[in-house]
């Protein structure tokens, strides 16, 4: 099953390599990865989308917690959460397709952020289903280039008080 894991880390060089190296050394998958600083400039947030059964996910969580520079690990999939991804899609547009491209973008509330005589660049933000649906619809027109940010996620505030299902002793305080 797919899990989205938020990993709060020290904002120091080499930390991302340690986290990524942990995945490759133990044969875990990284489906997507995003890293950026948080409000506190001494920390960064790594969001990892990974796949595994319960045993593997438990190991991933524990192994991440074991890294000295890792401050907090949360499996968002265990709570209610929001996830978003942004994609920039450069589509070929023959003259007869230019209207169609705009229509499709409109339906998805996507923006056309760049235009040339033969292409449009569409920007879309949404959950993974929405982004993939748009990509699928644009495919027949011919996608020249596609870039995705990888997913970021945040827990929903209303359910924050829900207790995690994991044993408390195994988590870092």
């Amino acid at each position: 099953m797919e899990h989205i894991i938020s990993v709060l880390v020290e904002n120091k060089f080499g930390v991302l390599a340690r986290v990524a190296g942990l995945f490759s050394a133990r044969g875990y998958n990284i489906e997507s990865l995003s890293v950026a600083p948080t409000l506190d400039p001494t920390t960064s947030m790594i969001t990892i989308v990974t796949v595994g059964d319960d045993r593997i996910i438990e190991q991933i969580m524990k192994q991440l917690n074991k890294v000295v520079e890792v401050l907090k690990v949360v499996d968002l999939t265990e709570t209610h959460f929001l996830d978003r991804e942004t994609a920039l899609i450069k589509v070929h547009t023959k003259p007869e397709h230019r209207d169609e491209a705009i229509r499709i973008a409109d339906i998805f509330r996507a923006k056309i952020v760049d235009s040339s005589s033969t292409t449009y660049t569409v920007e879309i933000t949404g959950d993974v289903d929405k982004v993939e649906a748009l990509i699928n619809l644009l495919k027949p027109l011919g996608i020249k280039e596609l870039i995705r940010t990888g997913r970021i996620a945040i827990s929903r505030e209303t359910t924050r008080t829900a207790s995690p299902r994991r044993e408390p002793a195994l988590l870092k305080s």
Binding site: Q59, K62, K66, A169, L170
Partner: peptide
């Protein structure tokens, strides 16, 4: 003392980290 050692290869009915 190492949580990753517990349930890594074999199940534990009563895990005690410490």
């Amino acid at each position: 003392i190492d949580p990753t050692s517990i349930k890594k290869t074999f199940h534990a009915h009563i895990p005690i980290v410490g």
